[in-house]
Design a protein around this nucleic acid. Sequence first.
DNA 1: TTGTATGCGTTATCAT
DNA 2: ATGATAACGCATACAA
Lengths: 352, 352
Amino acid sequence: MNDQRQGKVPSVHDVARIADVSIGTVSRVINDSPGVKPATRQRVLAAIDELDYSPNLIARSMTSKRTGSIGVIVPFFTRPFFMEVLRAVEVTITQAGRELVLYNVQTNDQCDSYFRKLPKQRKVDGLLVISIFPDDAAAAGFKHAGMPVVLVDAYHPLLTSLVVDNIEGAYQAVKSLIEHGHRRIGFINGIIEGDFRFNRANDRLIGLHRAFGEAALLFEPELVLTAEWDRQGGRRAALQLLTRADRPTAIFAASDMHAIGVLEAARSLNIAVPTDLSLIGYDGIELSEIMELSTVQQPMKYMGELGVQKLIAQIEGSADGGSPPELIRLQPSLMMRRTITTLPPLNEATNT
Amino acid sequence: MNDQRQGKVPSVHDVARIADVSIGTVSRVINDSPGVKPATRQRVLAAIDELDYSPNLIARSMTSKRTGSIGVIVPFFTRPFFMEVLRAVEVTITQAGRELVLYNVQTNDQCDSYFRKLPKQRKVDGLLVISIFPDDAAAAGFKHAGMPVVLVDAYHPLLTSLVVDNIEGAYQAVKSLIEHGHRRIGFINGIIEGDFRFNRANDRLIGLHRAFGEAALLFEPELVLTAEWDRQGGRRAALQLLTRADRPTAIFAASDMHAIGVLEAARSLNIAVPTDLSLIGYDGIELSEIMELSTVQQPMKYMGELGVQKLIAQIEGSADGGSPPELIRLQPSLMMRRTITTLPPLNEATNT
DNA sequence: TTGTATGCGTTATCAT
DNA sequence: ATGATAACGCATACAA
């Protein structure tokens, strides 16, 4: 029925013409501002309906300086931990009627580039940064551009940060292993990727040290390995650990994916879990439940939800200088499942 | 050093003022158009550097009518199959220097709403639709708005579609089961979510029928169950199937997640896989490899890559009416792993 | 109650 | 080679 058939999207002008009003009135109807006579409102509505008109959001962003989009910067988004955070993030953003722009980062450069450019490009109203520690320059850039930012599983003094006490989580895990009678405990840590920025590794090591210290256990550096954050990494490290003459009776892994790798290695070496080897993972991803893996559960869903909520609050209240940055601490919790057993009491003098 | 400290992002005007040129010249430098004297170019560049200026992309979109963003509409994006397609999609979009706007859909209404509004809102240059069959109205809407669209794992005659031959995949799987001597074969299909739109279920059933027919096997409706697309669904259905007096000796599952659930059910019933039960899943997600699950491998990575490439080609060539829609067929491949064995030859007369 | 005019930050088309 | 100026589609302050 329409005369034009290709790529012509109607604008306020078209609506105005059809409804025989001015564009100002059309705009008022769209945003249901007060002071439009019901009759003309109806005419405009009819015209909108006839043309199947929707406002051009880009143009609207021009004047409103709001895009309705939230940028999510996340490293390796397909990894289970990030995935599960991201799921909660998506739900919360959609519920808020906003859109999610995904910035997946795999390298430091990529990350820096996003940190530097996104605040000024204005394609998003705010940035949710997951598991990445921005440096001072980046934080200053956000502030200077007035770009709202919330850090999830990361920290910077100038930015609202939502952190999980992973020192405590690792401490609890290792302590539990010790309480189950283990003395030779292997630790498979994740590598620190991209210099110091995607830092999920250090805290685990510190927690382990604390538990060791408290139990007056000797820390043996040979039992601490570093591996890629995936099951291949975990498997390789476990192979190395488990083929030692004095192999550990328990392994603590920095992530559940590492722990899955440990499981694979143990199977290939005919080492029964938990009979001959106890194992605790980290994160509490869904797969850990399928595999009945004991683990340290992070509140991933809550992190995602709360992070988005804080960010939206910041966006909507950003008329003034904004409220001061918050630091929110979350606690992980130890999930005891199938992969851990008490070691029969053997003569503990061996260790000295 | 700067006088303003809060939320003031410089514009072309600021750059022009500092460099003592007109905004036109600044624009020319930014887009390195020809016809700018090297000296003034340097001055402008210096000013840009001094102000740390980046063009406002929203404003740029205003005139260029290009946003640089690609919208990806995907149902239940956290499910492994979609996740693995999405991973490839993300990589390809980022490589192309574009941005990924994620539209996760869980209901038909949500989906319709996106189909209806996104083309006119102009926040994205194109739409990649994964595993959803748009109806004629939606397809017409895309065409009318001139919005480039590519369908991945879905089909519509008016739109470039990238389909996997899942009938063939299911056929191969079931045929293989039959060749291994199985006669009583259970089938756990996925439910059809949101009416007929997220349709990943029918083709599997058709393929099964074909294999059954070819082998002159009697199709027993009681052995065909429908379950949610997750492991709980698979587990429940398997429990039902495996507690029958005449339980099947093999199960074909519509997705790997279903198959994982079957594995769980079998474990809980002390039914050994593959000794007492053969199993083939579908999709070929990473987890299938971990679990050593036999499965029908879909080319997820390739689907994601190719879909984005076709979409970008369409976006960049959309000056004219655009090229006619393509229909691209991809083949899945049977992956034989641990969960299938040959049944010892028993008297086959039982079945008649 | 409604229309007109201006601005948002760019790009592009004119002049100069 | 460069500057002024008109769009782009919308919101809004102001005028009528």
